[in-house]
């Protein structure tokens, strides 16, 4: 759809994120999200206490991942990932939509990998989550999926000359 000339003249509403971090900090946080949620939820589902609950170490790692995800969400790149069209210019919209495209591919690949594992696990009597653990994994998956577009934006952003890129 070709935009009308009047649409091209509209100035985007400014994006005012409550938190602004340097590019380096955002990237470190993004690694903490992926590691914290990945290890905390998956490790906590596989290695449980005798009563079936996750071990305390994994719960703490989850917390680190979750807090990092919250920080990234309210930070500029996370806000850009979830901003309405009118708040972004054409270039930012393209970057955001491309981040969603990669997120979709990562989500589908992760789920497909899990599906393949469920088939293999039948034959080798491998690990499969119980109901409680499946619920944990599902919430970890949903949180990661929501954080991923912001993470991708942070890693695709070009660092400024002084390597202290401000949030968009």
């Amino acid at each position: 759809m070709i935009p009308l000339p009047t649409e091209l003249l509209v100035t985007p509403e400014p994006l005012n994120p409550p938190l602004r971090l340097s590019l380096r900090t955002a990237r470190i946080l993004s690694l903490l999200v992926l590691a914290g949620i990945g290890i905390g939820y998956l490790g906590g589902a596989i290695l449980t206490d005798p009563d079936g609950s996750p071990q305390i170490g994994f719960v703490l790692v989850r917390l680190v991942g979750l807090l990092s995800a919250v920080a990234l969400f309210i930070e500029g790149r996370g806000q850009m990932a979830h901003a309405a069209d009118r708040m972004l210019d054409e270039r930012e919209r393209q970057q955001r939509d491309r981040a969603y495209m990669l997120t979709h591919q990562v989500m589908v690949t992760a789920l497909f990998g899990f599906f393949l594992w469920s088939i293999v696990a039948k034959f080798i009597d491998g690990w499969m989550p119980e109901q409680e653990q499946a619920l944990d994994l599902l919430s970890g998956f949903a949180i990661t999926s929501m954080a991923l577009p912001g993470i991708i934006l942070a890693w695709r952003e070009q660092p400024l000359a002084d390597d202290e890129g401000e949030a968009p």
Binding site: M1, Q94, D97, R98, H104, M146
Partner: peptide, 14 residues
């Protein structure tokens, strides 16, 4: 259009 479709698909999936 494709990229916007992926953004919408992501929202449905989440």
């Amino acid at each position: 259009e494709r990229d916007r479709a992926f953004a919408a698909a992501h929202r449905w999936m989440v």
